[in-house]
Structure formats: C-alpha cells, structure tokens
C-alpha cells in the first residue's frame, strides 16, 4: 500500500533532516510518516539473468518471490556481493528495486558497474544464489489526487524512480521523466519509461542539455498550463534544488530518494546517518527513516 498523504499534513512540518543552500533557495528535508514500509525478508535468491543495457550498466534479475510480493516503489534491497565460499567484500550493496513482478517472483536491479561489488554482481553465475534482504526503507507516496507526476533522475538515480512511474501509470497518472546523465551511453531506463507510457526527456552533459538552468527554462515553458501534483527526484543535489523550486512554484509535493554508505540497511548499525549537524540526538538514518524524504524549498532573503 502506498501512503496517501495530503501535502498539508502537519506531521511533516517538523523533523528537519537536512538542508542545502544555494543562492537564494534553501531546500529542507523532512521524514515522511512511517506508514508505507513493508516487512523485509532474507532470501537466498537465484540469479536468473543479466542483461547489459548500456555501456557500463547491467540489469540483473533475481528470483525473490517474498520480496516481490511486498515491494513498494522507492524501496531497496541489500545484496551480498561475497559469494558462497567467501567472507568479503564484507558489505552488501544497497540497490533500488527497479522493477518486479509479484506473480512470478522476479525482482530486477539496474546498476552501473562501478567498483568491486557491482562488478561481482554483474559476473555472478546465473543460477547461483545471492543473499538478498528487502524490501527496505520508506517508499515514495502517491496521493490519490495526483494526476500528474514529474520525475527527475540523474545517473543511476533514475533506477529509484522507475517503479513509482509504473505505479503511477497503472493508476492513469501522467508521468513526465527527465533522465539526466553525463553521456548518451549512460542514459538508462528510458525504454522502460516509454513502454509504460511516460513522456521521457533524456538530457546529457555532452551537449549541455542537462544544464540545470536550461532544464528550468524548459520546465517553465512546458509546465505552464500543465499542473504537476507531485515531483520525485534522485541522484543529484542540483536536480533536488530544481525539483524543490518547481514544487514550490506549482504547489506540488516533492520527494527525494537519498544515498548513503550502508552496512545493515535495517537501522541498527547507524552507518547511514543523513549527517545533519547540531542536532541534540541522532540525525535520521537514510535506510530506515528514508531513503525517501520530503523536500521543501524555502526562499532566503530575496524572493526566488
């Protein structure tokens, strides 16, 4: 069940978890109410297949029926990258649930082969079991009243947004997705998004189209008459600021999925603190209090 929260929910007002300040705008993050989380499970899941989807990107499918039956958009899994006879690498890798099918038990992860752990995942023999824990974390919310959803994903950040897009499309919500990457060969998930009927805008650094000011102008032009009720963003602080400003202008709810180094993914190791300083007690944890947080732009000094 995806939580249905009205943007005016007073419970969201407090509980500040972080803030980014840029020129005239400060983005404040707050925890969303803990109502959409599902019970995680541990599965020894066979790897079903790997598909290379872009230059450095692989889609790996696990047979993890319990996780598939409980997953919600925005949740993630912790995948053990040490194989059966090995005790290291010691840390499992956090990976967003890209897509799944509760009927068949299939769960997909799309990732960039980056370091040792993701290289091991991509090379995992098909049929061999992988220890997988999930679904973890608080999911994105999708209000019943939402008619139009804007997604902003940078790099592999888009992988945290695909399931939300699918959920929204299944409810008939219009979905516009900005998929930003450094180079054209690092653009992923656009086929998935197009297939489910989202409007996709791929943008890249190499031709300048991913420039945030250009995106802002383009969004201003395109969204003038088309209201957006909800914005979801992942993978870039600059896109987060842009999302928060768009949300403020259109009075839309903005949620962001954050990343952090993780060891347990469950909330007991305290390794993934959002790190907000000056709090009397501990700052929220990305794995347990997130990874999805509510974002709000606030003008400081002159109006934005």
């Amino acid at each position: 069940m995806t939580p249905d929260i009205s943007p005016a929910d007073p419970a969201l007002a407090s509980d500040m978890v972080g803030s980014w300040t840029a020129s005239s705008v400060r983005v404040r993050l707050a925890c969303i109410p803990d109502i959409g989380r599902t019970e995680p499970t541990l599965e020894h899941a066979p790897v079903l297949e790997h598909v290379r989807v872009a230059a450095d990107h692989v889609l790996t499918t696990l047979d993890a029926p319990t996780m598939a039956s409980r997953a919600e958009p925005g949740q993630f899994a912790m995948l053990t990258v040490a194989r059966g006879g090995e005790d290291s690498p010691v840390l499992p890798r956090p990976m967003a649930l890209y897509d799944w099918d509760a009927a068949t038990g299939r769960v997909d992860f799309l990732y960039r082969v980056f370091g040792d752990g993701t290289a091991r995942m991509a090379a995992w023999p098909v049929g061999e079991l992988m220890t997988a824990v999930g679904p973890l974390g608080r999911p994105f919310s999708l209000a019943e009243t939402t008619a139009s959803l804007l997604l902003l994903g940078r790099g592999i950040g888009i992988c945290s947004l695909t399931a939300l897009a699918a959920r929204a499309r299944a409810r008939g919500v219009a979905v516009h997705a900005i998929v930003s990457a450094r180079r054209p060969d690092a653009i992923v998930a656009t086929d998935f998004l197009e297939r489910i009927g989202a409007t996709v805008w791929p943008v890249v650094d190499t031709d300048g189209s991913s420039d945030v000011e250009r995106l802002r102008a383009r969004l201003d032009a395109q969204l003038r008459d088309r209201a957006v009720d909800q914005v979801a963003v992942c993978g870039s602080e600059r896109l987060l600021r842009l999302a928060a400003q768009v949300g403020r202008r259109l009075d839309a709810r903005v949620e962001v999925s954050l990343e952090a180094r993780m060891a347990c993914g469950l909330g007991y190791c305290h390794g993934c603190s959002t790190g907000e300083k000056g709090l009397a007690s501990e700052a929220p944890l990305v794995c347990k209090d997130g990874p999805v947080f509510l974002a709000r732009a606030e003008a400081i000094g002159k109006a934005q």
């Binding site: 952090a260 180094r261 305290h270 501990e282």
Partner: peptide, 14 residues
C-alpha cells in the same frame, strides 16, 4: 543523548 559522528561513517577495506 548523543548525535554520533559525521558522514562517511563507513568504508570498506580489503
């Protein structure tokens, strides 16, 4: 109550 240390709090080593 104590707040703990700043990020990163974890790093993998061999």
């Amino acid at each position: 109550a104590r707040s703990g240390n700043p990020a990163h709090r974890l790093a993998e080593t061999p």
